[in-house]
Amino acid sequence: MKKLLTSAAFIAFGASAAMAQTVGFSQIGSESGWRAAETTLTKQQAEERGIDLKFSDAQQKQENQIAAIRSFIAQGVDAILLAPVVATGWDSVLEEAKEAEIPVVLLDRQVDSDKSLYLTAVGSDLVHEGEVAGQWLVDAVDGAECRVVELQGTTGSSPAIDRKTGFEKGIAGADNIEIVRSQTGDFTRAQGKEVMESFLQAEGGGADICALYAHNDDMAVGAIQAIKEAGLKPGEDILIVSIDAVPDIFQAMAAGEANATVELTPNMAGPAFDALKAYMADGTEPAKFIQTESKLYTQDDDPAGEYERRKDLGY
């Protein structure tokens, strides 16, 4: 009898813990492959945790996001995930959510509103990403002289500024490493290839370049083609490190043509759901910024397998 009671209590407890929560997710849109992968992973994470996810695509418009959040509040969801398209103009709608006692978690980007208006923000530290890439290069060349060329992102964009700063921090103190040329490749493959061609021309046909640091994988993929066409071996004659960890760079790494990439994870929802779970269970307030891991992948980390795992995420 006693045993029956405990098992009944256990079932009841289990049921309440697994009780389907409803979470609204207001996504910016699907402007890039990374964004599409973030959407796919958020849906996957919700499904794994038995959460009922209400998804709304704002198609790059803030008014659509505000309308979506109001509709989530009206439906009485348990929590809201928001990937804000811009930083300003969220105060009133976030206050409405707060009055309805619905916690809001920001994904990937920040807002300029008061910190008390949202539970937490999950995102990546762009400076740290560059630092991880820089430290990899310091370890990889191990004291040897190294002249680095850098492919920057779009001039003036915050990822380009932060990833440049981070890399310089990463190689600070290593006097053997020097950035000799740095130009913008606009985050695209075509520009990455064109600018790499000019680097190769300017640096003795590539003989004077020891490594390439690209602010995203797409530019690195373009540069790899330029290096191959110049008759050099990317990955051996010129080391290649970039950021993002999109599927195509794993293909290049599997072929030995790229050396390392730092992941900007599209799984922002996982840490967000974890924080929400703890908050709802016993009211644990998470830190106001949850930094996602900037994981380093090299040729030793099964790049072929990583490619297979990522290729269907919508990148």
């Binding site: 402007e31 695209t188 075509a190 290839k193 993929v221 373009g222």
Partner: peptide, 14 residues
């Protein structure tokens, strides 16, 4: 030419 150059079609930037 642009597509053949990068061996891929980049609809956003081409």
């Amino acid at each position: 030419v642009a597509t053949a150059d990068i061996r891929g079609a980049d609809a956003n930037n081409a």
